[in-house]
């Protein structure tokens, strides 16, 4: 066990709540009054799979759980589980609901090295690399004359159909770099 301040919580952290381990799915920090802050937490109970929401003062001391981490790659989808494998091809299944924030980037044959987190041997969360490269399946025609990237338009990613805003010069079939923490388009690769 370790002390974890509520204000430091991130997706994938595991804390103890009412004597149960819960994995943080989302942590939203808001300034309250008089320089204090609160953190709204969406979390999943690892024993019951139940998803719930809670709120804590940002300076509240919670019990964090030490976790094992392993580099893995994405393998395949077997509804409702997403399957990852380690370097020895051991498969690890994680419920798609737990991976809500990254499912939009999971595609067949992807080679990105992901960090899978385990609690008592069970995989509970996956962290993608800071940036990934994906192919644009559809976007409106190129905006003429725009080389600045200031004009943006919607693009649809191949396989997942995820939509994001890209620079006006991006074309269908282009490979683009995406920031997985913010979900933002970073640049065109080819």
């Amino acid at each position: 066990m370790s002390v974890k301040l509520a204000g430091e919580l991130q997706s994938g952290n595991v804390i103890i709540v009412e004597n149960n381990p819960v994995v943080v799915l989302k942590a939203q920090y808001n300034k309250s009054g008089r320089n204090s802050a609160v953190v709204k937490v969406r979390m999943k109970n690892l024993m019951t799979e139940r998803i719930s929401e809670a709120i804590y003062k940002a300076d509240e001391k919670l019990e964090g759980v030490m976790l094992e981490r392993k580099d893995c790659t994405y393998s395949y989808y077997a509804a409702p589980m997403q399957v990852f494998v380690d370097s020895e091809f051991n498969p690890y299944e994680i419920h798609e609901e737990t991976l809500a924030d990254i499912t939009k980037y999971l595609i067949p044959d992807m080679t990105d090295v992901c960090e899978v987190t385990f609690y008592e041997g069970r995989p509970i969360s996956v962290l993608l690399p800071k940036t990934i490269i994906r192919e644009v399946e559809y976007t409106e025609p190129v905006v003429r004359g725009d080389t600045s990237g200031k004009i943006t338009k919607t693009a649809v990613l191949k396989h997942t159909k995820h939509e994001l805003q890209v620079s006006g010069f991006v074309e269908i079939g282009d490979k683009i770099e995406i920031d997985t923490e913010t979900g933002d388009f970073k640049k065109r690769i080819a």
């Binding site: 103890i16 709540v17 009412e18 929401e53 809670a54 709120i55 003062k57 509240e60 019990e63």
Partner: peptide, 9 residues
């Protein structure tokens, strides 16, 4: 929203 305690009821 509730603010459940780590170990207390």
């Amino acid at each position: 929203l509730p603010s459940p305690h780590p170990t207390s009821p």
